[in-house]
Design a protein around this nucleic acid. Structure first.
Length: 727
DNA sequence: ATAGGGTTAG
């Protein structure tokens, strides 16, 4: 029998294979083990004499059971010795085996040594590159294959299409699509599914739908591709419609379809629908599927139920970086910035390697925390990581530094990036705007254009806000009209910036006229901007009009009620103020409590109004009183009347000088060396009274005081504020 | 075919 094995010709036929009994797995493993330790190979020693089999299936089993490159290497040697190195079946299997072990160079070496590769061999090498994320090479091999005259088949295209998808190369995709039709795979469902996914990922969801509609026979993969296509293109409603169509067609969703549909609900924050999918998951007994657990975590986290999300997260006890990302970004997106940062630190301490998405989420969270010290730590971490030159991470860093109060550091990150795209430029422009440096923003915009980068819609939001924060009415107005030069269609966000710009500068009539001319339905943001302008200029009738629009568009947003109440208060209409309070109570709305955070030696300290809980409370309040005396000496008169009834600000019974930002200032003054800059973050907008007081304090104590409020930064110095009292 | 994803008003 042993001689039979060795006498089999290198060109073993398929027929022989079919009749061959299966080799017991334990036996094969034993042989593989032997291969590792023995240089003298005599497979005949291991032949089970009760069975008869051929060398093809024997070697095929060996290859399938190989777990290391050296196994493959020895099998290859053996094939050469046996004269089997031209056996297409075995060599192709060897190439596939190598690529499955990630040995892509070895796979290529085997491929190159093979003289006349057939379509199977070509598919194997194309698959190797595709599976190992080497998409340029995938396409290159495909080109070469066609050049050598080998016709691609239905197995070639899915890998090539995967490569096109990852390369996001629409032009190339169209060419490949043409070839698919030419070679006659226009109705191959595998190939067509690949096309659906490809066009969807490239953002051409319309084309994807055309391909999908042209499918004669649709599999679950076809449906999932089109659903996730819509979900990824921000068309959640369409995705959901396709999902119900799929079910109407009697196709039972599998876990991948459920993951895709959950993503759509996650994008639109639809808690109820997402919950029903959760129920569906349980009904189908799929609640242990890791990817679904991750999707559910991301879904609940995004919808703000971070506790529910955390329970999934804890339950899974995984080192899967995507799960960690879902949780960290979920925290970051829902105002749980510190939890996000803590989880990031914990992740690092457990030696789970963050990827670029983790780092972006952590940087995003740090931006919200607002601590410059943490920001610098993050920057430091990034520069030591593999993501020091990642454009996405660097853009987040710019945003983070700007939001943590240092536009200079933001600029430093900006300058060290040589390849800047429009998003990075926009982030920097936005940063200048946040700090009231309107002209810097505009200048940077011109530099950007000179660098050949075209602005996008977000760039203009940045520019228009920068103009708002600096009172550059004329410039803002002109920039708004420049948008059409770049074929950017203004959205509600742009219109509201313009309304804000006009309204804040007192052009209420113009703002109204402008709103009437908006070609789309004015949204919450537009009416909100008008209402806040009305509040500044005490224009009650117009304000009420805007407020009513807001109440019908967005009835459960506390902010609108507070604004209207403030408007009434500023006009001393106390009955109306009381009426708004009643309205709020009826709707079960509460005003947000104000608090301020100051960072001393890297430690964050939060204060609410009249806060006496700090161990140094006595010293803090002594300092407050000292400040109050000095303010009176220089003639400061508190602006009390409306502020006392202002729902935005803290309890009216309290002394104005006990507002949280004032306490934070006092604490900062007694805890730091003379001349140190104070950095304070407030959750609400700066109060008029405290704003004037802090301006004076900055002069009296010769300190720079930087306050981040809910909207922007105030740099107080020498009795002035960078906002020019314009906020 | 799949989960996490840089800049967005007040």
């Amino acid at each position: 029998m042993a001689s039979k094995l060795l006498s089999i010709s290198p060109l073993a036929t398929k027929n022989q294979k079919v009749t061959t009994p299966q080799i017991p797995r334990c036996f094969v493993l034993k042989f593989v083990k032997y291969l590792c330790f023995s240089s003298a190979l005599h497979p005949e020693h291991f032949v089970n004499h009760d069975h008869c089999f051929n060398s093809d299936s024997f070697y095929a089993s060996l290859i399938d059971n190989s777990t290391h490159k050296r196994h493959l290497d020895q099998i290859h040697n053996r094939l050469v010795i046996s004269g089997l190195q031209h056996n297409g079946f075995l060599m192709t299997k060897l190439v596939n085996g190598s690529s499955n072990l990630g040995q892509i160079c070895y796979a290529r070496k085997l491929f190159d040594e093979f003289c006349y590769p057939d379509v199977f061999m070509w598919n194997a090498i194309i698959r190797s590159y595709s599976r190992n994320n080497m998409y340029r090479d995938t396409v290159e091999m495909y080109r070469w294959m066609r050049w050598t005259g080998v016709h691609p088949d239905g197995f070639t295209f899915p890998y090539v299409l995967k490569a096109c998808t990852e390369l996001l190369d629409f032009g190339l995709s169209c060419i490949i699509h043409g070839q698919i039709i030419k070679y006659g795979f226009g109705s191959d469902v595998f190939v067509q599914n690949g096309l659906v996914a490809l066009y969807a990922k490239c953002g051409h969801i319309g084309v994807a739908k055309v391909v999908f509609d042209g499918l004669y026979h649709r599999t679950i993969v076809s449906w999932t591709s089109i659903i996730s296509g819509y979900a990824q293109n921000g068309k959640a409603v369409e995705a959901l419609r396709m999902f119900s169509q799929m079910r109407n067609n009697g196709v039972k969703p599998d876990w991948i379809a459920l993951v895709s549909i959950l993503r759509a609900y996650t994008d639109v924050d639809d808690l109820e629908q997402g919950r029903s999918i959760h129920g569906f998951v349980i009904k189908m007994g799929l609640e242990d599927e890791p990817a679904l657990l991750i999707s559910l975590t991301a879904f609940y986290a995004k919808c703000g139920l971070v506790t529910v999300a955390k329970s999934f997260f804890d339950q899974m006890k995984t080192t899967n970086v995507i799960m960690w990302n879902a949780m960290i970004s979920g925290y970051a997106k829902n105002g749980h910035a510190e939890e996000a940062v803590n989880l990031f630190h914990y992740m690092i301490s457990r030696n789970i390697k963050p990827d670029s998405v983790t780092v972006r989420s952590a940087v995003l969270a740090s931006a919200q925390v607002g601590s410059l010290e943490l920001a610098q730590w993050m920057d430091d971490y990034v520069s030591k990581s593999n993501y020091g030159s990642d454009i996405f991470v660097n853009t987040s860093l710019i945003d983070m530094y700007a939001k943590c109060g240092s536009v200079e550091f933001a600029r430093r990150v900006f300058d060290r990036n040589s390849d800047k795209d429009v998003v990075m430029w926009s982030a920097m422009i936005m940063g200048y705007g946040l700090h009231g440096q309107g002209w810097e923003a505009i200048n940077l915009y011109h530099v950007m254009k000179q660098a050949g980068v075209f602005p996008n819609d977000v760039t203009f939001i940045g520019l228009l806000t920068a103009c708002n924060h600096s009172g550059l009415v004329k410039e803002g107005w002109e920039l708004f009209h420049c948008m059409k030069d770049f074929e950017i269609v203004p959205r509600n966000e742009h219109y509201s910036c313009v309304v804000d710009l006009l309204g804040r500068a007192g052009y209420l009539g113009e703002a109204c006229a402008f709103i009437m001319k908006i070609p789309i339905e004015p949204g919450v943001s537009v009416w909100g901007a008008l209402l806040s302008a009305c509040k500044i200029y005490r224009c009650v009738t117009l304000g009420e009009y805007a407020a009513n629009k807001l109440f019908s568009l967005d009835p459960y947003n506390t902010g609108h009620y507070v604004q209207l109440s403030n408007l009434y208060a500023s006009s001393c209409l106390w009955d109306c103020v009381a009426h708004v309070r009643v309205l709020m109570r009826e709707k079960g709305l509460n005003k947000d409590l104000g608090y301020s955070v100051i960072e001393i030696n890297g430690k964050l300290q939060a204060f609410h109004v009249g806060d006496k809980s700090h161990p140094m409370a006595k010293e803090i309040f002594d300092e407050l009183q000292r400040l109050e005396r000095r303010l009176k000496e220089v003639g400061f008169v508190p602006y009390t009347e409306s502020v006392l009834h202002d729902l935005n600000y803290e309890e009216k019974e309290e002394n104005l000088s006990f507002h949280s930002e004032r306490i934070a200032v006092a604490y900062g003054l007694i805890s730091t060396a003379p001349g140190t800059t104070l950095r304070i973050t407030k959750n609400l907008r700066a109060c008029v009274n405290c704003h004037s007081a802090i301006k004076l304090i900055s002069k009296l104590v010769e300190r720079e005081i930087i306050v981040r409020d809910a909207n922007r930064f105030h740099h107080f110095k020498d009795g002035l504020c960078s906002c020019g009292d314009y906020w």
